[in-house]
Amino acid sequence: MNQQEAPAGRFAGQVALVTGGGSGIGAAVARQLAAEGAARVHVADLNLPNATAVADSIGGRAHAVDVADSAAVDRLVADVLADGDRLDVVVHTAGVDDPDAKARILAAQESGDPVDVLCELDDEAWRRVCSINLDGTFHVLRAAVRAMRPRGGGAIVTVGSSAGFDTLVGYPHYAASKAGVHALSQSVAKEVIAHGIRVNTVAPGPVDTPMAARTPEAVRKAMEKSGAIGYASAEDLADTICYLASPTAKNIVGAVLLSNGGRFTV
């Protein structure tokens, strides 16, 4: 089901926040939320011009945010509440990969040598991936729950990765950060359902986004061949995410939903 065919009104009158909304999966989610009746979609991204372009196209509001900065995330949610005094849906898609590690994977693939990433992985590269992917998810979950709890409800969807289950050779920091997103989200889901707040996670396989475009072509082709279906589109993931965020999924709490084109099951 694509955005144009989606049933109208699942998010009628609701206020939504999408992090990483300036491109890729986040932008597709923001557009679908607006198309399905959201009264206001707040589009947050490290790249403010990108966020502004998406927000302007759907009548939303753009924000600049670095999700690794907890105070910045708190200010973002405070701004959302100040704009409309409610927050019903939060979709957290902001995240990063590591182009240097991908280049090393490619070099090993071309040379036939074993992959050598771990011994060359410095503290800065480790912290960059973990601070944005895992710490950022914690910051967004905490701020969102604080905003939603007084109203007694809400829906939050985080984005993990199939790499958190089927770990990639040469990608230890990314796999660890996304496995952490899964466990963190599930733990929070069990805690906050008592307040009417549903938390779920989608775990994509390869998705055709600007981040994926930085993957070396040979590595990309190998990943594309690894499943029954090739790279998913951002709109494919938006469909899944919006389902989890919608009342249609009212009985789904703490799920980590694979969306990986049949690469593996758990």
Score class of each variant (00 low, 15 high):
A94F: 07
G95I: 03
V96I: 13
D97P: 00
D98T: 01
P99E: 08
P99G: 06
D100I: 06
D100V: 13
D100C: 00
A101L: 01
A101Q: 02
A101M: 04
A101T: 02
K102Y: 10
K102I: 01
K102T: 00
K102M: 10
A103H: 06
A103R: 15
R104P: 00
R104A: 08
I105R: 02
L106R: 14
L106G: 00
L106A: 08
A107Y: 03
A107F: 01
A108F: 08
Q109T: 10
E110S: 10
E110G: 00
S111H: 03
S111R: 04
S111V: 12
G112V: 09
G112D: 04
G112Y: 05
G112M: 09
D113E: 15
D113L: 14
P114A: 08
P114T: 10
P114D: 10
V115T: 13
V115K: 11
V115E: 01
D116V: 13
V117F: 07
V117S: 01
C119S: 15
C119T: 14
E120V: 06
L121T: 05
D122Y: 14
D122R: 09
D123M: 14
D123C: 09
E124R: 14
E124F: 08
E124T: 15
A125C: 07
A125E: 15
W126A: 06
W126F: 09
R127A: 15
R128Q: 13
V129D: 02
S131W: 03
S131V: 01
N133A: 05
N133C: 08
L134P: 03
L134T: 08
D135H: 10
D135W: 12
G136I: 04
G136H: 06
G136A: 05
G136C: 09
T137H: 07
F138P: 01
H139V: 05
H139K: 13
H139L: 07
V140H: 04
V140P: 03
V140K: 04
V140S: 06
L141H: 02
L141K: 07
L141F: 11
R142C: 06
R142G: 06
A143S: 15
A143Q: 12
A143H: 11
A143G: 11
A144Y: 07
A144T: 07
A144W: 05
A144K: 06
V145T: 08
V145E: 04
